[in-house]
Structures are given as structure tokens and as C-alpha cells.
């Protein structure tokens, strides 16, 4: 059992290392010299010697593989380098910006799960054919809506037209309610889709017919048989969506002018500040891998067939 856990852990670490490598190749090795890009073109009027000193200071004069090992070592120690633009340590920037983004993402994920659940339950409503139809067509609509546009529309309707949510000097909840809704809607759609599809599929399974032959009614079957079986795949989906969630958070923060990873990312891209972007990429890959691993390890609790060592003999 511990061997299988160790194996999964090893795989996760491997993916993480590969993600770091991809980020390094894209952002550090391929573009060549970030220091040159930054200072040669600028009108600071630095002399060739000054640039050379800077290059040594940033470690940009070493061969690529040495830089790779050096950067990897730094990352492992939690040192993500310095922002090329501002000179501030990236770790410090992250510490300032990460919490608000995580908070937003967490709230949005919760809201998305609730929304997906409500849609899935409505899709199984007895009677009310039109409600079922509506609940089933909502996810397609939700995925088709651009996150940033949804945010703008929500501001338009709730702040400007209805005046329900103040944009000037908002209360803390007012500041978050629209961003969370903006982010939750597109994330809920794939979850709802998977959940609805799985519930439908499980309803067609022979064991559901057996449960009904026992005298169980619709609600009983739905809650005691169908739901438990439809859940694991949905949970996996939620894990996969984490990446979308982070990307969506970046966009949402931009739309609502919230501070956080979003602004940081935008600044980094605008200024070609590769060190910052590299840290963000590796960090989000780390979060993704950690969540996938967690779900992987939780799965046997939901589905005994995946149990690492079956108890008792068959």
C-alpha cells in the first residue's frame, strides 16, 4: 500500500520537475538573455561593463545547463529569484499577491460546486420537463461565455443598471460577490456536464433496476445509489478544472481591478519579467499536481474497487 502511494508521489514529483523544465525552457533558455532584453533596449544609458556586471549578478553568463541547475536549486529552497523589473524578490511579490487570489479561487470553486450540484439535481427533477431541459442546456451556455465579458456584464447589470452592488467604496462582500460569480459560472459548467452525464449513465445501470425492484423510489435511488457512483468522476473533473480556475482568476482580477496574481501576471507579461512568470507557472503546476495527487489518494475511499489492497479474499 505504501509502495503504491510512494509510486504516485514519485510520478507527481516527476510531472512537477517536467513542468519546471518546460517553464525554464520557454521563459529562460529560449528567449536568451532576459537581462540584455531588459537593459540593452532601455534608455538607461548603461555601459557595456555595467551590463556585464548585471549579467554576472543575475547569473546570466553561465551555460544554460548550469543556469538550469542553479535555478532549480533556488526553487527547491524557495528562492524564486528577483523581479527583473522592480528588483524585488519574487517570493515577496508572491507572498503579497497570493492570498487574495487563493481566497477568490476557493470561494469561486465552492460556488461552482454548489451551482453544478443544483443544476444536476434540477436535471433529474421528476415532472417539470422544461426545468430538466433548461438545467441540461445551461452548462453549454456557461462554457460559451467569456469570463471577462461575463464580469463586465455583471458589473453593468448589478452595479450600473440595478445599483445593487456598489463599485465605489464597496463593502468587503460587495467587492467579492461579483468576481466570485464571474469565476464560478464557467467553472461550474464542465462539472455540471460530467455530473449530469454520469448520473444519467448510472441510472441506466442494471443495479439501479434491482434497487427499484426492491421497491425503492426515485429519490431513494438517486441519493443512495446513483449519486455515490456518479461522484468520483466529477471529483476528478474538479481537480482538472483547477488550472482553469487560476487562469480565470487572473482574468477576473483584471476585470474587477482586484489586486492579486492577476495583476502580477499582467505586469510580468507586459514587462517581459520572466522570473516572475516562471515562478507563477511553477507554483500553479505545483498546486495542480498536489490537488490531483490528493484526489487520487482519496478516490479509493469513494470507490472500493480502487482500494489499494482489497480486504479479505474473494
Amino acid at each position: 500500500m505504501t509502495r503504491q502511494v510512494a509510486q504516485k508521489l514519485g510520478q507527481a514529483l516527476l510531472v512537477l520537475l517536467a513542468a519546471f523544465t518546460v517553464a525554464f525552457v520557454l521563459l529562460q533558455a529560449l528567449p536568451g538573455d532576459a537581462v540584455l532584453i531588459k537593459f540593452l533596449g532601455s534608455e538607461m544609458g548603461l555601459t557595456a561593463e555595467q551590463i556585464a556586471e548585471l549579467r554576472i549578478a543575475y547569473g546570466a553568463d553561465a551555460p544554460v545547463w548550469e543556469q538550469y541547475l542553479h535555478t532549480l536549486g533556488n526553487f527547491l529552497r524557495g528562492d524564486f529569484g528577483y523581479s527583473i523589473r522592480s528588483g524585488v524578490p519574487v517570493a515577496q511579490l508572491l507572498a503579497e499577491n497570493l492570498p487574495s487570489t487563493l481566497w477568490l479561487a476557493l470561494l469561486a470553486l465552492t460556488a461552482a460546486c454548489l451551482l453544478a450540484l443544483v443544476l444536476a439535481l434540477l436535471s433529474q427533477l421528476e415532472g417539470f420537463g422544461w426545468v430538466r431541459g433548461l438545467a441540461r442546456s445551461m452548462p453549454s451556455l456557461f462554457v460559451a461565455v467569456p469570463v471577462f465579458w461575463l464580469g463586465i456584464m455583471l458589473i453593468q447589470v448589478f452595479s450600473f443598471q440595478l445599483g445593487l452592488v456598489s463599485v465605489i467604496a464597496p463593502e468587503p462582500w460587495e467587492e467579492l460577490v461579483l468576481p466570485v460569480a464571474t469565476l464560478a459560472v464557467p467553472i461550474s459548467a464542465p462539472m455540471a456536464q460530467v455530473l449530469i452525464r454520469n448520473i444519467d449513465a448510472v441510472f441506466g445501470e442494471p443495479f439501479v433496476a434491482v434497487a427499484r425492484a426492491k421497491g425503492a423510489r426515485h429519490q431513494w435511488v438517486l441519493w443512495r445509489h446513483v449519486f455515490r457512483n456518479a461522484l468520483p468522476a466529477t471529483l476528478t473533473m474538479a481537480g482538472v478544472l483547477f488550472g482553469e480556475l487560476l487562469g480565470g482568476a487572473v482574468v477576473t482580477e483584471t476585470v474587477f481591478g482586484l489586486g492579486g496574481l492577476g495583476g502580477m501576471t499582467q505586469q510580468a507579461v507586459a514587462n517581459q519579467d520572466v522570473a516572475v512568470l516562471q515562478a507563477i507557472v511553477v507554483l500553479s503546476a505545483f498546486a495542480f499536481v498536489a490537488i490531483s495527487l490528493l484526489i487520487d489518494l482519496l478516490m479509493p475511499l469513494l470507490d472500493p474497487r480502487l482500494a489499494l489492497r482489497p480486504a479479505g479474499a474473494s
Binding site: 512537477l16 518546460v22 488550472g243 487560476l246 503546476a285
Partner: peptide
């Protein structure tokens, strides 16, 4: 690995 990195990033 590619799937582990958020698509926007």
C-alpha cells in the same frame, strides 16, 4: 506536464 500548467499561463 502540459496539462498541469493552467492554459492561460
Amino acid at each position: 506536464t502540459l496539462l498541469a500548467i493552467p492554459s492561460l499561463l
